[in-house]
Simulated assay, not measured.
Amino acid sequence: MLRVNNLVGFGARRRGPLAPAYLHYRIRCLGFSAPYWWRVREFEIYPETGLGGTKLTGTASASTARSGEQASRAVDNSAATYWGATTTGGANVGQWLRITLPEAAIAMSARFQVYAGHDANLVAWEGSDDAVDWTVLDEQPGTSTDQAWVNFERQ
């Protein structure tokens, strides 16, 4: 007897709608109370929930970047380097860090690593086809614990 699990196609049906694929994924600061600039050690996106599958990689960019703290430092697999926005305190609201993939892909989870004292209170994970119109995929509170990860799951 042949048993097939998770069959898609051949008349099988998926549960729920298929999540859209996006070319651009970003984290955006929604709340910030520290008197410093926002810093992120690492930003990663994954094709499966629970940070599963092979990490999706692309080119990093940001709304602003301090000298020597460019966006590429947040996707270099090193907790010793980081991206830093040029703004301070509440002016960090709206700052973002983006990964542009080589081609559109479905990302189901993401995470970023905190730089203590330079952490956002609330962060949105968003996706876009054109880097103009964005869809919020999840929102999470930040943490002030150095090198802690903040995880997102697509809603």
Score class of each variant (00 low, 15 high):
Met1Ala: 08
Val8Trp: 08
Val8Glu: 14
Gly9Cys: 05
Ala12Tyr: 08
Arg14Pro: 07
Arg14Cys: 05
Pro17Asn: 11
Pro17Arg: 11
Ala19Phe: 03
Pro20His: 02
Ala21Gln: 10
Ala21Phe: 04
Arg28Val: 01
Cys29Trp: 04
Cys29Met: 07
Pro35Tyr: 09
Arg41Lys: 08
Glu44Pro: 02
Pro47Ala: 00
Glu48Lys: 04
Gly53Thr: 02
Lys55Val: 04
Lys55Asp: 09
Lys55Ser: 03
Thr57Ile: 04
Ala62Trp: 01
Ser63Leu: 02
Ser67Val: 06
Ser67Glu: 15
Gly68Ser: 15
Gln70Lys: 09
Gln70Ser: 14
Gln70Asn: 14
Ala71Asn: 05
Ala74Asp: 06
Ala74Pro: 04
Val75Gln: 10
Asp76Asn: 11
Asp76Trp: 00
Ser78Tyr: 01
Ser78Met: 03
Ala80Asp: 15
Ala80Gln: 12
Gly84Ala: 14
Thr86Met: 12
Thr87Val: 03
Thr87Tyr: 11
Gly89Gln: 09
Asn92Glu: 14
Val93Glu: 15
Gln95Thr: 05
Gln95Asn: 14
Gln95Ile: 02
Trp96Asn: 12
Leu97Ala: 07
Leu97Met: 08
Arg98Asn: 09
Thr100Asp: 14
Leu101Ser: 04
Glu103Gly: 10
Ser109Cys: 01
Arg111Met: 02
Val114Asn: 10
Tyr115Trp: 07
His118Asp: 12
Asp119Val: 00
Leu122His: 05
Leu122Trp: 06
Trp125Ile: 00
Glu126Asp: 11
Ser128Gln: 07
Ser128Trp: 06
Asp129Gln: 13
Asp129Arg: 10
Asp129Ser: 14
Asp130Tyr: 05
Val132Thr: 13
Val132Ile: 09
Trp134Val: 00
Glu139Gly: 00
Thr145Phe: 02
Val150Asp: 13
Asn151Ile: 01
Glu153Pro: 06
Arg154Asn: 01
